[in-house]
Amino acid sequence: MALDNDKVVNSLGFAKTPAETRVVVAMSGGVDSSVVAAQLAEEGYDVVGVTLQLYDHGAALAKKGACCAGRDIHDARRVAEEMGFPHYVLDYENTFREAVIDEFADSYLAGATPVPCIRCNERVKFKDLLETAKDLDADCMATGHYIQRKMGQKGPELHSAEDAARDQSYFLFSTTPEQLDYLRFPLGHLPSKEATRALASRYGLSVADKPDSQDICFVPNGNYASVIEKLRPGAADPGDIVDVDGNILGQHKGVIHYTIGQRRGLGIGGLGDPLYVVRLDVDKRHVIVGPKEMLATRTIPVREINWLGDGKFSDQSERHVAIKVRSTRPPRDAIIRPISDTEAEIELLTPEEGVSPGQACVFYETSGSRILGGGWIWRGY
C-alpha cells in the first residue's frame, strides 16, 4: 500500500517506505554502528555500509582493536554479510593524516591539548564521508553515536543522549545545521550500552560482545608523547621546569610529556606544597609550575564557533548557558558574550581548573538537553 505523504513518515523522517529510503551507515566495526546497520536493514531500509580505512593498520601507529583498524574493517564487512546489505571500504588514509593527525601533532608541539576525535568527525566523517553518501544517492547518513537529533520549531536540533554516561555531544558540537539535516543517530534514545548489546544479540551479530575501543584510534595505550616523537622527530628536546618567577626547579625530557593541570611525574618533590603544570612555554622549552589555585580560570576566549542555537550567533546578547571544557566533566554555568560570528568570551560563574588551549568548549542549554554549539579554546592561561 502506498503511503499518504501528508500523514505518514518512516522512522528516519521520510514520507516514503523504508524500501524506498536509502541510508548510508558509517560502520566503524564496533557494536554501536553494527547495531544501527542491522536495525535499519531489519526495518527494510535500503542500507549501504561504508567503513573508512583511516590509517595503515599494519603501521606502528595502529592500535589493535581501535576504530577503523584492520580487524574492525573485517568485522564491519562480516556484519554486512550477516544482514545482507552491501559494504564498501574507502581509503581515507591521506585525508585523515592531513586533516587530523598532522594538526594533532602540531597542536601538541605548540603546548595545546588537541581533541582529534572532534576534528575527525568534523573534517572526515561528517564532511568527506557525508559527501560520499550523497554521491551514493542516499537520503541520509546514520551513525552509531550516542546523541539525539530532534525536530524543533525551526528545524532539527542536536540533543544529548538519553544515557548521560554514553553521551558523545562534546565530540559532535561542530556538526553544522546543514549536516544535521542529513544525519541520523538511531541509538541516542537508548537507556544504556547494555540495551545496545541486547539488540546486537537479538540480531545475532558476531560483534555483540566486542569490547569498546579505548583512547584515540592512532594513539597506542594513550601514550601521546610516543606518537608525537614518531611523527615529529626531535620533538622531545629537554628543558627546564621553572616556577612562575622563572626559577629553575628541575629538568624535563620534553614539553610534549606534560599537560596543563598535571601534578604527578614532575620529579620535583620535596619543595613544599604540591605544584602543578600551569603553563607550557614551547619556545623556551619551559614547563611552568605553580600552586593549584593558579589553575583556576574564570574567563575563556573561544573561536571557530559553530552555532546550533536559534538565530545568528553575533546577534545574540550575552546568554546564560552551561559549558563543558572536557568530555568527562559536568557542565558548568557560564555566560557567553559574542564578539563576532565565530568568536566569543566565556565567563564561568565558578572558576574551572585545568582549562587548556586546544580543548573544545561546548555550549548547552541551562535546562534541557539541547546542544547550542561550541568552539575552540585558543589562548594560554
Results as ranks from 00 to 15, higher is better:
residue 213 S to Y: 11
residue 114 P to R: 05
residue 333 D to L: 12
residue 53 Q to L: 09
residue 285 R to Y: 00
residue 25 V to L: 07
residue 209 D to Y: 01
residue 202 R to G: 10
residue 128 D to M: 04
residue 253 K to R: 12
residue 12 L to P: 05
residue 41 A to L: 01
residue 44 G to M: 04
residue 228 I to R: 01
residue 277 V to I: 12
residue 374 G to H: 11
residue 93 E to I: 13
residue 307 W to C: 05
residue 72 D to H: 14
residue 323 I to D: 05
residue 310 D to H: 10
residue 274 P to W: 06
residue 103 E to M: 02
residue 201 S to W: 01
residue 232 R to T: 06
residue 240 D to P: 07
residue 280 L to K: 12
residue 370 R to K: 15
residue 53 Q to W: 00
residue 312 K to V: 15
residue 254 G to E: 10
residue 137 D to S: 14
residue 107 S to D: 15
residue 41 A to Y: 01
residue 199 L to N: 04
residue 367 S to M: 08
residue 124 V to E: 06
residue 363 F to E: 07
residue 255 V to D: 01
residue 37 A to K: 04
residue 231 L to N: 09
residue 217 C to N: 10
residue 117 C to I: 11
residue 311 G to T: 12
residue 23 V to L: 08
residue 33 S to G: 07
residue 241 I to T: 13
residue 199 L to G: 03
residue 316 Q to Y: 02
residue 39 Q to R: 12
residue 187 L to D: 09
residue 154 K to L: 12
residue 100 V to H: 07
residue 175 T to Q: 03
residue 25 V to G: 08
residue 222 G to K: 07
residue 275 L to S: 03
residue 269 G to R: 13
residue 71 R to C: 00
residue 231 L to H: 08
residue 175 T to K: 04
residue 262 Q to A: 08
residue 130 L to A: 14
residue 158 L to H: 05
residue 35 V to T: 03
residue 80 A to D: 09
residue 285 R to L: 05
residue 15 A to E: 13
residue 100 V to P: 11
residue 285 R to A: 12
residue 156 P to D: 01
residue 27 M to Q: 11
residue 204 G to S: 06
residue 70 G to W: 09
residue 335 I to G: 02
residue 221 N to Q: 13
residue 118 I to S: 14
residue 230 K to R: 14
residue 333 D to H: 08
residue 26 A to K: 04
residue 50 V to H: 05
residue 288 I to D: 09
residue 363 F to R: 07
residue 69 A to S: 15
residue 367 S to P: 00
residue 121 N to P: 07
residue 176 T to S: 15
residue 129 L to Y: 00
residue 244 V to Q: 15
residue 356 S to D: 14
residue 300 I to M: 05
residue 218 F to C: 03
residue 370 R to L: 12
residue 261 G to F: 09
residue 286 H to C: 02
residue 110 A to Y: 00
residue 178 E to F: 01
residue 365 E to Q: 15
residue 368 G to P: 07
residue 31 V to K: 06
residue 116 P to H: 06
residue 227 V to Y: 06
residue 146 Y to C: 06
residue 138 A to F: 08
residue 373 G to V: 10
residue 327 S to W: 11
residue 312 K to W: 05
residue 376 W to C: 02
residue 242 V to N: 05
